[in-house]
Simulated scan of single mutants.
Amino acid sequence: MQQSTQPDTAPQWWQDTQDIPTIVRAIYECISGPAGVPRDWARFRYLQHPQARSLRTVVDDGGGTHAVVFDVDGYIADVTPYFAANGFFEVEIDQRVERFGQVAHVWSRYEARESPDSPVIKRGANSIQLCFEHGRWWVFSTVWDNERDGVAFELW
């Protein structure tokens, strides 16, 4: 599926896709907000390639892990009930970008809070893969894991 270049109706969204730090910041803005306030899913979808995937690492009761993989609409369906009941503000605290031609990989460390001024409820890292196509950056995949016993940032 090909998407058009600059849209007529959302010039700010187009600006979100013109450089790597801006598209990453836009992702965090889309998923952050107070409990019960709908997120800007139209903007979120605009940032994602039509075939984009997300992968969340889940820790089982026994301490093992497994991956849960979503397409864009699957991710939205999964997190919407949580966001309806809970405030969630995820902010980037560190970023490392590696780029080769039209492909980029971003390590984005984050902290999450229930409100902008509340204590940190979790930290983790997003691995975000991007591709520059049709005059803009697209998110192709996002893989993340949260900090926990035995899992912390090693090389930065």
Rank of each mutant, 00 (worst) to 15 (best):
I27T: 09
V58K: 04
P7G: 11
P21Q: 03
V72C: 03
F132E: 03
V37P: 03
G63H: 11
E111P: 05
G101Q: 08
I128C: 02
A104P: 10
I121F: 04
A35H: 10
S4E: 11
E92S: 10
S127E: 14
G87K: 05
F89S: 00
V97P: 08
Q48W: 13
A125I: 15
G36Y: 11
W137Y: 06
G64L: 12
Q18K: 12
Q18L: 14
V120L: 04
W107P: 01
F88C: 02
D145Q: 09
F153C: 06
W14P: 02
V106S: 06
Q102S: 03
A104S: 10
R113C: 10
A77S: 14
E90M: 08
E29S: 01
F140M: 11
G64K: 13
P34M: 09
Q12R: 14
Q18Y: 06
E147F: 12
S32L: 04
T22A: 14
A84Y: 07
Y110G: 02
D78K: 01
T65D: 12
Q95C: 13
P11S: 14
V68T: 11
N86D: 05
Q12T: 15
I76C: 07
V79W: 00
F140P: 01
S32K: 04
E29G: 00
V120R: 07
F153N: 07
T57G: 01
F140Q: 03
P116M: 10
E147H: 15
V120N: 02
A67C: 06
V37S: 13
W156L: 02
S108V: 08
E111W: 13
G74H: 01
D61A: 15
E90D: 08
E133N: 08
D19W: 04
A125R: 15
G135P: 03
F132Y: 05
F89M: 02
L47K: 07
D149T: 15
A42H: 12
Y46I: 02
P50D: 08
A152S: 14
L155Q: 13
R109Q: 14
A77P: 05
F83S: 02
N126F: 05
Q3Y: 10
V59T: 14
I31K: 02
E90Q: 10
Q95T: 15
P116V: 15
E147N: 11
N146K: 12
A84G: 12
T22D: 11
D19V: 01
A67E: 11
P119L: 14
M1L: 07
G101C: 02
P11A: 09
G62L: 11
P34W: 04
D145K: 12
V72L: 00
P34F: 08
D19S: 09
Q129P: 07
G74K: 01
W41M: 01
R99D: 09
H134D: 05
R113I: 09
Y110W: 09
R53G: 02
R43G: 03
R43K: 04
V97T: 11
S108P: 06
R56S: 07
I93N: 12
Q48H: 10
H66M: 02
D117C: 08
A112R: 00
T5E: 14
L155D: 04
S54F: 12
F44W: 07
G36T: 11
P81H: 10
Q6N: 15
D145H: 11
Y28S: 06
L47Q: 06
V72P: 01
V69N: 00
E29D: 06
V59Q: 15
Q48Y: 08
D78H: 11
F44R: 01
R109V: 12
H105Q: 14
A67K: 09
R53F: 10
